[in-house]
Nucleic acid binder design. Structure first.
Lengths: 267, 267
DNA sequence: CGAGGAGTTGAGGCTAGTCAAGGCCCGTGG
DNA sequence: CCACGGGCCTTGACTAGCCTCAACTCCTCG
């Protein structure tokens, strides 16, 4: 059933189908290795997994819609966003291959956020019942899903740490470092990376004005930490970039001894 | 239950055992209902689940330690924090009953953050192998764990939205509303709530100066949104508080009715 | 070629961080 | 018993960083 969902981000008519099923056979083993980050190409069994191609700019998930589909990003990138009642679009996260999409529906009736493809992408598409059935049949898949979910929890805490930086330059530096580590985890270069988001989206994600994002990037470039060309960033001095990331306003250094006490428990 | 227990935050030697096993028999059904938020008291089978009592101020999880224990908060509250190399303690999250603790170890060798009890608490304690065994034996438990993990993902996105508010007063207002909704989900009052964190911890969590937190609270109180007494907060005008939460700098309340979609489905 | 969006840069005002002092509540110890 | 000390919280004054507004350039696309 070739269902063609149409994105609504253009006030004019959407010309082509921006989301379409992909015929290529996808194996469960590939999905599992994608979820838990391992690169093992296990069994070659040919499970009938649904695969979708999503065009850049298309909206895969619609905020507020009760969405029956659960996704895992296979290639490409997405941003999630919530639109306030005044129309402001708050960017909430950046999703890369291996990340889950729409699993929030497991505990909420409606999707809490929209998901928009930042570039052409492919995603696995499962229904809730398919997910539970696969989990029951394949314990390895079950663990892989848990692995992916907890990994995203870790990512979330990392982003909280990025956001908690008080100074704009530090926040920007932390975000670049965070993205770098994510790219490294994907097997891509940790030095040269591509900002998939526009300045306005980065600003929204970091809670800054987009002019401040631009200024922070040029400032970091002027200090020799980065080389910036539009959305392409090269980290030229990682150590100094990390120093800038630490730099909270006023709190430079304090020798606070860390108390290390084991609150132990008898087994 | 009496809530005004004094915390022993003395950095000197911990006198007594601050974490101790609890003999009370805990059922798997109770844990499942705790995880997925339902209140059904299902089967009365007496599974030998480990239960710990944690004194206020005690550190349940140590950052960096390879921790074999996975926890689910049964009562009380925790904060998670990461200490930077300069000694600054960054508060990352606030955990309440039903939240998981330490599951990040499922995809990381080390605990990414410490967890400190804000008040006397009880937690379930499982080893990784016990978790997987229980999940294999009891599909309901497996789904409950997934439910809890995705719920925490949703919470994480909510916190990102709180943090993304540019104005300090708006950020504070959003945090109070967020906490209120969490307390309501716990079955407690959404109007009168108790900040479990000190001003300094709230400031750290929100990325503000603790003086700013204090000022924002008094400002919101002066506007009639709140009544503040130390860590006890009463929401006196929820509508105005929500208006303040929307208030991003410059984008004041212009009546721009864009799209009015139903906020939530019944029950 | 014009339109429009994205990015950059500058000027100015105001928020919020910083430093400092004081009040309050609790603990300890004289 | 009260003085003392050390937290936590509050308030004030000052200042700097960031948001706002407003240009301008560059690039893409129709």
């Amino acid at each position: 059933m070739p269902l063609a969902l149409i994105d609504n981000h253009t006030p004019t008519a959407a010309p082509r189908n921006t989301i379409a099923p992909l015929a290529s056979g996808a194996t469960l083993a590939e999905l599992i290795s994608l979820l838990d980050g391992s690169s093992r190409a296990a069994d070659t069994r040919h499970e009938p997994l649904r695969l979708w191609r999503v065009r850049a700019g298309a909206t895969l998930l619609h905020e507020g819609a009760s969405q029956p589909w659960l996704h895992v990003v296979r290639s490409g990138a997405f941003k999630t966003l919530r639109t306030a009642e005044d129309g402001y679009q708050q960017v909430l996260s950046l999703l890369l291959p291996g990340d889950t999409l729409g699993f929030e529906a497991l505990c909420r009736r409606q999707q809490p956020a929209s998901a928009v493809a930042l570039e052409d992408a492919t995603v696995y598409a499962l229904t809730l019942s398919e997910l539970t059935a696969l989990e029951l049949q394949h314990p390895a898949f079950d663990r892989a899903v848990q692995y992916a979910l907890t990994r995203q929890l870790v990512r979330c805490a990392e982003m909280a740490e990025v956001m908690a930086a008080v100074a704009a330059e530090a926040r920007m530096a932390r975000f670049v470092l965070w993205l770098s580590s994510r790219m490294a985890a994907q097997g891509e270069s940790a030095r040269r990376l591509r900002l998939r988001l526009g300045r306005r989206d980065v600003a929204s994600l970091l809670g800054l004005a987009h002019e401040t994002v631009s200024r922070a990037l040029t400032a970091l470039a002027a200090q020799g930490c980065l080389r910036v060309n539009n959305r392409d960033i090269e980290i030229t001095d990682r150590a100094q970039l990390q120093a800038r990331a630490r730099h909270t306003r006023g709190f430079s250094d304090e020798g606070v001894p860390v108390v290390r006490q084991p609150d132990c428990v008898a087994a």
